[in-house]
Structures are given as C-alpha cells and as structure tokens.
C-alpha cells in the first residue's frame, strides 16, 4: 500500500510521519499531498485562538469530548511557539487532552511555529489536509494568535473562535484592529471571574460598531464558559453548527468561502515557495552575504541590492 492509500485508510503512523515530513519541508511530502488533494474538503475546520492561559486547550478538550459523544471523529492541531533563541519548543497542549489519547477517533498533533523559514501557515494547512483526507469529521486548530501567520491560519478555518477571559479591560481596545476582527464566535472563558459582564459588553460594543459588516450576514455571538467544569461548551458547539449552516445554506456564500480559501492558500503557497527557493538559494550561493556586506559598507543601497537579486532570479526562472 502506498503512502496516500495508508493515509486515506486512516493509518496513524503514516499520518504522523507525513505531517513530520511536511513540517520538515521534505520534497516527497508534496507529492503525497498532491495525490491526497482530491480526498480533502469533507472535514469541518474550527480555529481557536486567544492569548496564552485563557484556556484554549481545555476548551478544545471539552469540545472533543462532546463531538465524540455525538460520534464525530476529530483531529486536533495544537500550535505552540518556537523559541527564537534556541529554535526549540515545548509543546504542552496535550496535557489538557490526555483523556483522548487512547481514543482511535481522535488524532492529536502538536506543531511548533518554527521560524521565518518554517512556513507555518503552509505546513498547518497541509497538516489539516492530511487529517481531512484521513477522514476526520472535525478538525480543531489551536494557536496563540499573535502575528499575521497565526491570523492567516485561523482565517482559513470555517469557523473561528476567539477566546478571552474577564478583566482584559483596555487590552481589548488594543486588540480591536487585529485578530478580534476575524472572530465568528467569541467565548469569554473563566466566566466565574470578576468583570465578565464588562468584557462581554466591551466585545458587544466592538461588534455593534461594525454594524455594516454584519448586516445581512453573520453577527458573531458572545458566549461565556467555564471550560474546566464543562460549562457553556454545548452552547459553543451549537453556535458552530449554526455558523456552519450559515456558510453552507446559500450556494453563493459557499462558493465565496471556497474561492476565498483557495485564493489565500495559493497566495501563501507561492509566497512560501519563493521564500524557500529564492532566499534559500541565494543564501547557499553566498550572494546574500555578499549583498549584506555591500549594504553595510554603504557601497550599495538595499533597494538596488534587492532589485538586482530578485530580477536576476526571476529571469533565470
């Protein structure tokens, strides 16, 4: 049996290894992904994001529990940051999801953000495709949600959940123009804490002010939860279902989503390819170091250096 067949039949080892190869940028993995593509598109992808410590992993754990009770299979992709100094990472999201590790209907994978060359967006999307092809009904992607890369990841999900905790106060103002705008559902976790009403009304205000965007469309609901006590989880899943219905109920909306997703995927893929091919290539050949030296010595300006390199590369194809 070839690798694609193994993936489609749900072979855990094959899936795990392919995701590793994707992460490590092994060219053969791309070939497998090409063959898997026709088998993707069936899973429903939910993105969960929020600051460290707001309870994302616990929330995911409870959602998995409820989805499993409803006989749905689930893939979880948990992204944690890579240390910019050592390049290493501690991936600790499994701690909260331990109880599902013996369940064959659940596949959990931790992934590190790696660095600039890591192509996080690309590798997470490919990992989602692999879990999709292996037949998972739901795929939940968890990220810390800082930086454009991570915003892009959650944007490629069907439903994006933003998790907050009470007492963030003015921080919400600062977040407003960033990741908060991509939320389809807002969850205020640890709702037993003081200030929950204030946080809810802050978010509500933000949403109401964006009335134009939500008119005739999906207006993000704001839910409260206490994930450790399994409170509010059912309601979150109900809203996901509603949002799913919303996305799929009109053919135009459905095709718009797919079009948008395909566009984002392709843009990312091309960007990634250029970075890994052109940049890696000129670093290997020493051209990069050469240009750097000239810039430092002020013999050339960085704009010209960039033009020289890029135009030369483009011409050589």
């Amino acid at each position: 049996m070839g690798i694609p067949e193994k993936i489609i039949s749900g072979n855990i080892r094959a899936v795990a290894r392919l995701i590793r190869d994707i992460d490590d940028n092994i060219p053969e993995a791309r070939e497998v992904l090409k063959e898997l593509y026709p088998y993707t598109g069936k899973a429903y992808v939910v993105g969960i994001t929020g600051a460290p410590g707001v309870g994302k992993s616990t929330l995911v754990d409870q959602m998995v529990y409820h989805l499993r009770k409803a006989k749905k299979t689930v893939g979880v992709l948990a992204v944690d940051p890579t240390s910019p100094f050592s390049g290493g990472a501690i991936l600790g999201d499994r701690i909260r999801m331990q109880r599902h590790s013996m369940d064959e209907g659940v596949f959990i994978r931790s992934m590190a953000t790696r660095g600039y060359f890591g192509g996080l967006t690309q590798s997470t999307r490919s990992a989602i495709d692999v879990m999709d092809a292996m037949g998972k009904d739901y795929i939940i992607v968890e990220t810390v949600g800082v930086g454009q890369d991570e915003i892009d990841i959650v944007r490629s999900a069907h439903t994006t959940i933003i998790t907050l905790v009470p007492g963030m106060g003015d921080d919400i103002q600062a977040l407003k123009a960033g990741i908060l705008e991509v939320g389809d559902i807002f969850v205020i976790n640890k709702a037993d804490r003081e200030g929950v009403d204030r946080t809810v009304s802050d978010i509500r205000l933000m949403i109401e002010m964006d009335e134009k965007r939500y008119k005739n469309g999906w207006k993000p609901p704001i839910l409260t939860a206490q994930a450790v006590f399994d409170e509010g989880i059912k309601e979150i899943l109900d809203e996901i279902k509603k949002h799913r219905k919303y996305l799929t109920s009109s053919p135009e909306r459905k095709s718009m989503f797919q079009h948008e997703k395909a566009r984002n995927d392709l843009v990312e893929m091309i960007k990634d390819r250029i970075v890994s091919d052109v940049l890696a290539n000129i670093i290997d050949s020493g051209e990069f170091e050469e240009a750097l030296q000239l810039i430092v010595e002020k013999k050339i300006d960085p704009y010209t250096a960039c033009d020289n390199i890029v135009l030369k590369k483009l011409k050589s194809g």
Binding site: S83, S86, G87, G88, A89, I90, L91, G92, R94, Q98
Partner: peptide, 14 residues
C-alpha cells in the same frame, strides 16, 4: 526545558 534550549521540539504530555 533543557531539551528546548538545545533546539529540540519537546512534546510534554504531563
């Protein structure tokens, strides 16, 4: 932590 500082990716399962 030591493994992380050595550049490994460490899955910590609790």
């Amino acid at each position: 932590r030591a493994y992380r500082d050595a550049g490994f990716e460490v899955v910590y399962s609790g």
